[in-house]
Nucleic acid binder design. Structure first.
Lengths: 214, 214
DNA sequence: GTCTATACTCGGATAGAC
DNA sequence: GTCTATCCGAGTATAGAC
């Protein structure tokens, strides 16, 4: 007889449900934010109960992290943390482009800011994610500065500059979220780089091609 | 017991209860963190029900904000946002001192990082608090840089430097919370200042007297 | 003005049906 | 392996006692 199942049982069923949940959640988080979103609502829209959802994602935060990871993966160039081998200046330009992009998604940016603060707690579910993320990000930026070491002031170690640059990305975002009209993140980052002798003006070593196509 | 009242009715009663709640909450937040703390427990320890507590503080976050404000007020030196008129370098040294202090209270620092991220949402209960806080903090740092304008690179506006410095305070804190052993916030901030021509070495213009008496 | 009683939905946890 | 039923304590909201 006809079944009310929307997916056939057997191998792959779980993966399908999981994917459906993530798809629904991605849209819902962006629209409602984190706190306003009910797992019961969300589960209902994905065709199961909130306990069923919990089988796939242990906590609400774990689900959010999956959504963010998913976005990182599909938003290939701008958000992937490993751009193809490029010049130091190109990597820095790419980083500025990420920040610029975030400007168009304040909800997600706010979520990230909140999570990265919470994740400092070693027992927080998002701790490993952010720990790894910053390690990689700082390493990438450090390598970029290393390549441009000739431009840097003599006393400024690439690793120090990298930590500062990444901190600037985060800290400026907090101020921008609070006061969008008064903070120009791209200008600030560009000014910082100019201050340490690095220009990322892309008319110099590339054509007019846009930064990472989404 | 003769009476179950712990405070007499009449004028000032509400203020007393409020103060008692804040006192209990301050200790409890620092010990248990934000999520782990139950308003029912807390209210019980303060001698009323959780609904009674809600009469004084509409939300859990409002209570936390009151605790933080209270700390700002009593923790006079390091956290007061308005040091008396001092030299630019002294103000910057005071700011670094704040960051250094936060190092001893990772729980509170994490709470602040989380809240400042969340507060970007215009409807968040903490939005006005943080909006004002950053406005004032940036203005104070800007004034400090203004005084030291002679040292700054010609192309660097005091306001730009101020935004960067404040962003650095926040961003470094996020990285430090995630990876305390690998991030030295004071060294980073000092390095940044040195990079723009400012030394805050306090053996140069003052005795060993402590930073601003509130 | 202060506060209690009560009820609502939330995220989370467990037991067990299929 | 997937999922439902059900319970728990949480934050929040309202009505009304004092």
């Amino acid at each position: 007889m006809e079944s009310r199942r929307t997916v056939a049982p057997g191998p792959g069923k779980g993966a399908q449900t999981r994917a459906r949940i993530v798809a629904v959640a991605a849209e819902a988080f962006a629209r409602d934010g984190f706190d306003a979103l009910s797992l019961r609502d969300l589960a209902g829209r994905a065709g199961l109960t909130h306990a069923g959802l919990k089988h796939h994602f242990a906590t609400k935060e774990a689900l959010l992290l999956e959504v963010l990871d998913e976005r990182d993966r599909s938003d290939s160039e701008a958000f992937a943390l490993w751009p193809h081998r490029r010049s130091g200046r190109e990597v820095l330009r790419w980083a500025v482009e990420i920040v610029s992009r975030n400007t168009t998604q304040p909800g997600t940016a706010s979520l990230y800011a909140r999570l990265s603060g919470e994740a400092g707690d070693r027992h927080h579910p998002a701790h490993p994610h952010f720990f790894q993320r910053y390690r990689r990000l700082v390493a990438i930026i450090e390598a970029a500065f290393q390549e441009e070491a000739a431009q840097l002031p003599a006393h400024l170690a690439p690793r120090t500059a990298a930590r500062q640059f990444v901190a600037l990305m985060d800290g400026l975002q907090v101020q921008w979220l609070l006061d969008p009209d008064d903070v120009d993140m791209v200008a600030q980052l560009t000014a910082y780089l100019a201050g340490i002798g690095i220009s990322i003006d892309d008319t110099k070593d590339r054509t007019t091609e846009e930064a990472p196509a989404r």
